[in-house]
Amino acid sequence: MNQVNVDELKGKKVVWFISSLDISDEYIYKVIIPIGETIIEQYQIVWIPIVYEWTNEAKEKFNQLADNKQWHVVRYFSTIAGIRFIEVDWQYKGKPMVVVTSHRGEIEYRNNSLPRDFSIWEIIIKLGAKWFDRLASYINDQILAWMKEKKHIFFYGGKDDKWVEKFKEKAETFTKDTDIKLVSLISSSKSAKKFWGSVEELFVSVSKINISHQQQVDHHVTQQVQNLFWFKNESGWAVLLEGFTVATSGHGSIMLKVLEDFNEKLKEQVGPNFGSAFKECQKLVVGKEKLHPCYRFDIEDGTEKDIPNHTMRCPDCSRLMKTYLSLRCCHEEED
């Protein structure tokens, strides 16, 4: 916890999280506070707890919530004058809320009644931050360092271990003596579970923003997010990153075919334009081989998350997707 004087934040972009003490660590981490380093670098994050009576129990709860967090906390044990401003000008209604202010102090975003399933992705996407950064934080520290250095990175994985091994061998041969990096996602790892959970949150947020807001998410971002979520249950997949930007991504059958058929041509393009060259070769493979695997999105408790499924368009062909009901039991205990 970093205690902060509000005057120290003048001239800086700030994400203000305002709430009572009636919240949990799980709620803070999952719903409100971004983990990605890029977001933390772009915005100061400040928690203002609204407490009208500081009992010993309240102080203990405050210390527990504020302990070992990456953001700033306005610490006080008596009523502060700013509460009136927050209640009147920011319209605090007793529920957790978020306000984002620019370096000039102007409000860029405000939500004063956060729903149960609110996600920080809504802020990240609408403010145009680098959305893949938070996802990368679930993979490993090395990929974040390479992204900051604007390296080209093949990020890949899949349910089929044989495909994963085959892609790894082909990619290692191709990237030998180049500065292109390789990162795999082990499907059975704890980090993979967190990664796909965060991808689903992002998918849900993008879907809802596109339906409920006049200003939609950029089409390319929507397409990239949908592709990534589709990969979750596929045999193989690969994403080509250029720093924090997704240059292209695709099903395993397509991405492997690109490396097999255009090996020499792509080696000549290794450099700043490698992402564009790979994407063009990918289009040629899709056109020649007629490779258009079916897209499927499996969302756990999807009805409770109020997904606008009847207006969901395929990221590949732009047709309206068909909706199916899927029920499953794997005879396992709940986590």
Rank of each mutant, 00 (worst) to 15 (best):
Q91D: 14
M1Q: 08
K193A: 14
K93F: 08
E289K: 09
G158D: 02
T38L: 13
L135R: 01
L240I: 12
I299V: 14
E53C: 13
I139C: 02
I18D: 03
D316V: 15
T175L: 05
P34Q: 06
H331N: 08
S318K: 10
L228E: 01
W146T: 11
V98K: 00
K290S: 14
V100S: 00
G128K: 06
G36V: 02
K150P: 05
S235A: 11
F229W: 05
R313D: 08
V221H: 03
W196I: 04
K130I: 04
Q226R: 07
N227C: 09
L114E: 02
V225L: 03
K265Y: 14
L202K: 02
K168D: 09
N263R: 13
G302W: 00
F174S: 01
Q214N: 09
Q3H: 06
S187W: 08
Y76F: 12
K193F: 13
N2T: 08
E260H: 11
M97L: 08
N233D: 13
A58S: 13
I186M: 05
S78W: 10
E334K: 08
Y109I: 00
F195K: 01
G36D: 04
N63E: 15
K265V: 15
K181P: 01
S191G: 12
R84I: 09
I254A: 01
F62E: 09
S191M: 13
F155T: 05
G252A: 03
W16L: 02
L9C: 05
L327H: 08
Y109V: 01
T173R: 07
E280D: 15
G82T: 09
K162R: 07
H213G: 04
K265W: 12
G105E: 02
F195G: 02
K93M: 15
V88H: 12
S113T: 14
I50Q: 08
K176T: 11
Y29I: 12
Y27C: 03
E172M: 09
S189H: 13
H219Y: 09
F195I: 04
G243M: 04
I35C: 10
S207V: 09
D160S: 06
A66N: 12
S119C: 06
E26L: 14
I299Y: 00
N273I: 14
L284Y: 11
